[in-house]
């Protein structure tokens, strides 16, 4: 048995030596590992979270001269991986779902502001939209609010518990403000993927669906006699956000046309003097015990990347709106955003 143990030990030692040399070669004053794992809260490598993360992470890896890889493990697994990684070998990129899931009380979502460190924001996906069939009796969002207020049931297909539901909740809140007590006429049809939501519309089981500019724009270009034809009624993004998009907009819909569907043209009151808006923002999340120097390091590297100005072009080409805020600023901003939405949900409960 002797030769066998000898060789195993040798292999072990050799591999250990390789391991030590590579992990020690991270950038000089940056306490970041040579191999950074970036987990995202989505399981899809075709989705917006993955796309956005890979744009940013590739540049970050170049800048810091490290290896970095985006892993689409999904929200629950990503939070778990983050919790385990005290030394900062794993960081996470996710969007507003991370705190909205908590607000809606979805199982497994804890308070990110308590349990993790909120890092820099990197971009906005401005595409969150609400659509109706092209032959719908509702010409505008206002008509939908009025219809619900006048006792007509309006069914909205959404994916429950987060980004897809927040616009619906805001709409419900708007009905409540204008027609107190009538908000229950706005009914959520809980369903899953974009395909399912579209299908709900085709089947006549929903009057309005939540969708996105990216996935649904071509449906809005279909002739009215096509049963698949749809029409935008509302984009939840801020006016300023859409205004930053490339002029060509998306597909055959120009930026100018998109701007028709955002505030102040479409008006969803959040309280007496403010309109509701929702931008889906992507940001980093870190383990609670991550070295502040490492956080700083990522902030600085990102600041440099955004100063160079190339990443903005790349993001806009993919219909993302660049939106870099360093950790401190981002955390405060997102917390404020969360609190606003929490108020809406509380009002609806009460």
């Amino acid at each position: 048995m002797k030769p066998f143990w000898g060789s195993t030990c040798l292999a072990l030692l050799a591999s250990a030596a390789i391991g030590l040399t590579t992990s020690a070669q991270a950038a000089d004053d940056c306490p970041l590992p040579g191999n950074l794992r970036v987990v995202i809260g989505s399981t899809s490598t075709g989705g917006d979270t993955y796309q956005n993360s890979s744009i940013v992470v590739d540049r970050l890896a170049d800048k810091l001269d490290i290896n970095a890889k985006v892993d689409a493990v999904g929200a629950m697994a990503a939070f778990r991986a983050l919790e385990r990684s005290r030394r900062g070998n794993t960081v996470m990129i996710f969007h507003d779902q991370s705190y909205l899931g908590n607000l809606y009380g979805v199982n497994g979502y804890s308070d990110i502001f308590e349990d993790y460190v909120v890092g820099p924001t990197i971009a906005i996906n401005p595409g969150n939209a609400y659509l109706v069939p092209k032959d719908s009796p509702y010409q505008s969002l206002e008509e939908i609010i009025d219809a619900a207020g006048n006792g007509k049931e309006v069914r909205v297909a959404i994916q429950p518990g987060g980004v897809s539901e927040i616009g619906f909740s805001a709409l419900k809140n708007a009905v409540r403000l204008k027609y107190p007590g009538k908000e229950d006429n706005l009914v959520a049809v809980n369903t899953g993927s974009q395909a399912d939501k579209n299908q709900m519309l085709f089947d006549g089981l929903a009057d309005v669906i939540q969708g996105s500019v990216q996935a649904n724009e071509q449906y809005t270009q279909l002739p009215a006699d096509d049963q698949k034809a749809m029409r935008f009624v509302w984009l939840t993004a801020r006016h300023d956000t859409i205004a930053q998009a490339n002029e060509e907009g998306m597909g055959n819909t120009t930026r100018e046309q998109l701007l028709q569907y955002v505030e102040p043209n479409v008006h969803v009151p959040m309280n007496a003097d403010q309109d509701f808006t929702f931008d889906k923002e992507f940001f980093f999340l870190y383990n609670k015990d991550m070295d502040p120097a490492a956080i700083h390091c990522i902030d600085d590297a990102l600041a440099e990347i955004y100063d160079e100005g190339e990443i903005q072009e790349q993001q806009k080409r993919a219909f993302f709106i660049p939106n870099f805020k360093p950790s401190q600023e981002a955390a405060g901003y997102l917390k404020e955003k969360r609190d606003e939405y929490a108020t809406i949900l509380d009002n609806l409960k009460g």
């Binding site: 429950p160 518990g161 987060g162 809980n190």
Partner: peptide, 10 residues
């Protein structure tokens, strides 16, 4: 869980 990505309640 009854996954919310399928429209479940999580």
């Amino acid at each position: 869980t009854y996954s919310i990505t399928n429209g479940g309640n999580g």
